[in-house]
Simulated scan of single mutants.
Amino acid sequence: MSIPEVLSISELREHLADAMTQARSSSGRPVFAGRHRRAEVVLLSADRYAQLLADERRSAVADAIGSTRAEGLELSEFGEAVMREVADGTLSFDEARTRLLTHYRR
């Protein structure tokens, strides 16, 4: 992986439209900027950012399921459905926790 170019803050200000075009392009290359040419911020397209969040959410769900199985347990059908909703982004982790605790405390 090559080291990305890091724009100074003044260069980013001066070329913001170009930087946004680069971030939104089909390659989706992020734009790095910072003081003294040290990367401090990253400009990403909103779509790429949403994709990164979704990837992180799916990874967290997979880790949680893996931890459950490592303990010799299996998720119930209800538990799997809740975890799928979390992975899909239609349910937050806090909402899932509340739903699961309510369900299993019955």
Rank of each mutant, 00 (worst) to 15 (best):
F32G: 02
E14P: 00
F32L: 06
Y49I: 00
S26F: 07
V6A: 11
V31L: 07
V31N: 08
S26V: 10
E14L: 03
G28E: 14
Y49P: 00
A33Y: 07
F32H: 10
A39Q: 11
A33K: 04
E11D: 14
L43K: 07
M20H: 01
V42G: 09
S8N: 13
S27W: 09
E40Q: 14
R24L: 03
A19G: 05
L16R: 05
R13I: 01
R37T: 11
R37Q: 13
L12E: 02
S26Y: 08
R29L: 09
S27P: 06
Y49L: 09
A17S: 13
R29G: 06
R29P: 00
R38F: 13
H36D: 15
H15E: 02
R38A: 15
L12I: 01
E14M: 03
T21P: 04
A23V: 01
S25V: 09
H15R: 09
A17M: 06
M20L: 04
S8G: 14
A33Q: 04
G34Q: 09
T21W: 05
E40T: 10
R24Q: 04
L16Q: 02
G34W: 05
R38K: 15
E11Y: 08
D47N: 13
R24I: 00
G34I: 08
R13E: 03
D47S: 15
M20S: 02
S45P: 13
P30G: 02
R48P: 13
H36K: 14
R35D: 07
R48E: 15
I9V: 11
D47E: 15
R24P: 03
E11C: 06
G28P: 01
H15T: 02
R38M: 13
T21Q: 10
L12K: 01
A23W: 01
S45R: 05
L44H: 10
V6P: 04
L12V: 00
R38V: 15
L43Q: 09
S27L: 10
D47P: 04
L12M: 05
V31P: 12
S8V: 08
V41H: 14
Q22A: 00
R24A: 03
L7M: 11
T21R: 12
S27I: 08
S45Y: 09
L12F: 01
V42C: 14
A39F: 11
L43A: 12
T21E: 13
L44S: 03
A46R: 05
E40D: 11
V6T: 14
Q22E: 00
Q22H: 00
